[in-house]
Design a protein around this nucleic acid. Structure first.
Length: 638
RNA sequence: GGAGCCGUGGUGCAGUUGGUUAGCACACCGGACUGUCACUCCGGAGGUCGCGGGUUCGAGUCCCGUCGGCUCCGCCA
């Protein structure tokens, strides 16, 4: 059964067309042959969106190929807008000019695939709203390449179907210019980046998609081996080790546009498979990497007509945390975390004193101009957010003309409240927000509030681009669940050479030679100088709780390579999807991926993942222990 | 794993306190129309209200469960 009720005449019409020996063209009710078999109209001479006024003045004959975007049938005159990826243009069929073409055009409907020959003319009634609205094509010949009997969603930039429907019928959704544009930009950004890398002598080398699972990091996607019963390949989370090995092999400068796979829960900016521009160079220093990336990023920005100032700003990790409460600060606006200094000391206010006595601190931010708009409900909302982020509470001080309000007014008194708010930089009309807790919690909570309040108050300028290197990350961080240190970047990141000796006694204090590139609060690239000496790698593995045996078992090839004359090296990887999303103004990376997956990592179009035959499983030596709901059980859902 | 929002003709939405035949727009089909441009006008077809269960004389509406989509937390070296 068809998905929607098809009116009989149309499906009859469709069948008739296919029955015709030359189904590429029209079948006439008379039974006569079509004016064209269509093949001669496969050769487009100009894109629909590229038909120009010069063409009109010259009265140029053109051939268009594309889809019927809109039909305006006035009975005698028929207007057809033809669309291809370059845009659309109006074709007019006038029976007094070409009766045969007009008769053919009567049968055209939305999304039919056509070739049209005609002559470009200036319009009698131009439409300045439309890019090609000054001209039209007088239609002289039509070839119908295909009809469209099931078009589940309208191909229209104005009306948007739900994302669920759009993903299911992605091949139709992708016809919409608005949906195509980000993918075209993605192509141009990729080309720009490649051009810079190629120009600097980088060589693109492919690395395996079927590789081995390694500990640390994200959950792997596994591929069962048919030949080796019970063994599995893993899809790469990144080509990290391979690119290091290429350095050992003397490739000097490597890059790759590479798909990476991580089996973790999805977000607007996370897909299970995503693309990195992976880069590695021998004898690298952070300076060399920064220089390369800055040229690359500036070249990519040039594609959207934005000039980027170089060199980019740099900020140590500690400073980013102190001022912005996050390791990827959004520098498009202020509202930095402030230290109220001695204004909060010795107040007798339990919240403040308690935190300070416990070795913690009091920190705050100012929501500028928020006094009048911050109702009790708004303030409660902020408080709620602060608690969710880990704070015990949130102290607010509202400075209004001649009036100060705060839940701490009683405990602190009006003068104190005013002094504290002013110590944070607040003036009349502002709201000061304070958190008293450990350093980590103060930073995390205020960092979270800073972003959400700025967005709420519309304080983030949409047209600014703020790039920043964040450097001097800690090498390791304590993992409460695992009860051990884990690598903040990855286990092959070099410690600062001058802090190597602290690795054994105080691993948490060692800083890494790692760096992230942050654009408007999003991490778009991250990298490091790698460990190129086996003895250092051994020491880092030990700090991570990986003993010699496990290291040999899982990373033997790397250790072998480091012992075989590995040059100092380092690199970086750019999150290409995220970068494309930011530069094209898309909110989700799904919009810069042709066939993305949903938040449950399935593809609504192909209905993957799917069950497979018993025989296939057997061949792979697999048995499914816990079959989820079968596809049949899910039938009713959509 | 957790929280929130959402699911009604092909598509986007409305649907009151639970009450008659589930309504609107666009799309679709037929007809009319020689300058439209989101053409217009007339007519028509199209729905087990995601799925399952419950409460009720009666459920699109209330309750429970479940599936799916999106956002966020956990997770993502």
């Amino acid at each position: 059964m068809p998905r929607r009720g098809l009116a009989v005449p149309r499906s009859v019409c469709y069948k008739r067309g296919l029955d015709s020996p030359a189904c590429l063209g029209f079948s006439r009710a008379s039974g006569g042959c079509m004016s064209s078999n269509g093949l001669e109209l496969l050769d487009r001479t100009v894109g629909c969106g590229e038909v120009s006024e010069a063409d009109a003045e010259a009265g140029r004959e053109v051939v268009l190929t594309g889809w019927v975007h809109r039909r305006r049938d006035l009975g005698q005159l028929i207007f057809i807008e033809v669309r291809d990826r370059t845009g659309s243009v109006q074709v007019v069929f006038d029976p007094s000019e070409n009766a045969e073409a007009h008769k053919d055009a009567e049968q055209l409907r939305a999304e039919y695939v056509v070739g049209i020959r005609g002559v470009v003319r200036p319009r009698e009634q131009p439409n300045p709203e439309h890019p090609t609205g000054m001209v039209e094509v007088r239609g002289h010949q039509v070839a119908l390449h295909n009809r469209a009997t099931h078009v589940p969603i309208q191909v229209d930039d104005e009306t948007e179907a739900s994302e669920e429907i759009r993903l299911k019928y992605r091949y139709v959704d992708l016809r919409r210019p608005k949906v195509q544009q980000p993918l075209f930009l993605r192509h141009r950004l990729g080309r720009a980046a490649r051009g810079v890398l190629d120009g600097q002598g980088f060589v693109e080398v492919e690395t395996p998609m079927l590789t081995r699972s390694t500990p640390e990091g994200a959950r792997d996607y596994l591929v069962p081996s048919r030949v080796h019963p019970g063994k599995f390949y893993a899809l790469p989370q990144s080509p990290q080790l391979f690119k290091q090995l290429l350095m050992v092999s003397g490739f000097e400068k490597y890059f790759q546009f590479v798909r990476c796979f991580r089996d973790e829960d999805l977000r607007a900016d996370r897909q299970p498979e995503f693309t990195q521009i992976d880069i590695e160079m021998s004898f690298a220093t952070p300076e060399k990497i920064y220089g390369l990336l800055e040229e690359m990023v500036a070249t990519m920005f040039a594609e959207i007509g934005v000039k980027i100032e170089r060199p980019f700003r740099r900020m140590p990790y500690d400073e980013a945390m102190r001022r912005f409460g996050i390791d990827r600060p959004d520098l498009r606006f202020g509202m930095e975390i402030q230290d109220p200094g001695d204004s909060v000391e010795g107040t007798g206010f339990r919240v403040f004193d308690g935190a300070i006595d416990a070795g913690g601190m009091v920190r705050g931010i100012v929501a500028p101009g928020a006094a009048s708009s911050s109702s009790r409900k708004v303030l409660d909302g902020w408080q709620e957010q602060a608690k969710r982020a880990g704070a015990g509470g949130l102290v607010w001080i509202k400075l209004e003309e001649g009036k100060i309000s705060s839940p701490a007014l009683k405990a602190l008194g009006e003068e104190r409240c005013k002094a504290i708010a002013e110590a944070l930089g607040a003036t009349t009309g502002d709201v000061a927000l304070l958190v008293a807790d450990s350093r980590e919690i103060c930073e995390r909570v205020l960092g979270t509030l800073r972003l959400s309040i700025a967005s709420e108050l519309d304080l983030i300028p949409a047209d600014r681009w703020e790039l920043c290197w964040v450097e001097d990350f800690p090498l390791l961080e304590w993992d409460e669940d695992a009860g051990r240190f884990v690598a903040k970047h990855h286990p092959f990141t070099a410690p600062r050479w001058d802090e190597l000796d602290k690795l054994a006694e105080d691993p948490g204090s060692v800083r890494a030679q790692a760096y992230d590139l942050v654009l408007n609060g999003t991490e778009i690239a991250g990298g490091s100088i790698r460990i190129h000496r086996k003895d250092v790698q051994d020491r880092v593995f030990r700090a991570l709780g990986i003993d010699e045996e496990e290291a040999e078992d899982k990373f033997g090839f790397l250790l072998g390579a480091l012992a075989a004359g590995a040059p100092p090296h380092g690199g970086i990887a750019v999150g290409f999807d995220r970068t494309c999303a930011l530069l094209s103004g898309c909110e989700s990376i799904r919009d810069v991926i042709a066939f993305p997956k949903t938040t449950s990592a399935s593809c609504l179009m192909t209905e993957s993942p799917s069950a497979v035959d018993e025989a296939q499983l057997k061949e792979l030596h697999l048995k499914v222990l816990d079959p989820g709901p079968s596809d049949k059980d899910k039938e009713g859902d959509r």
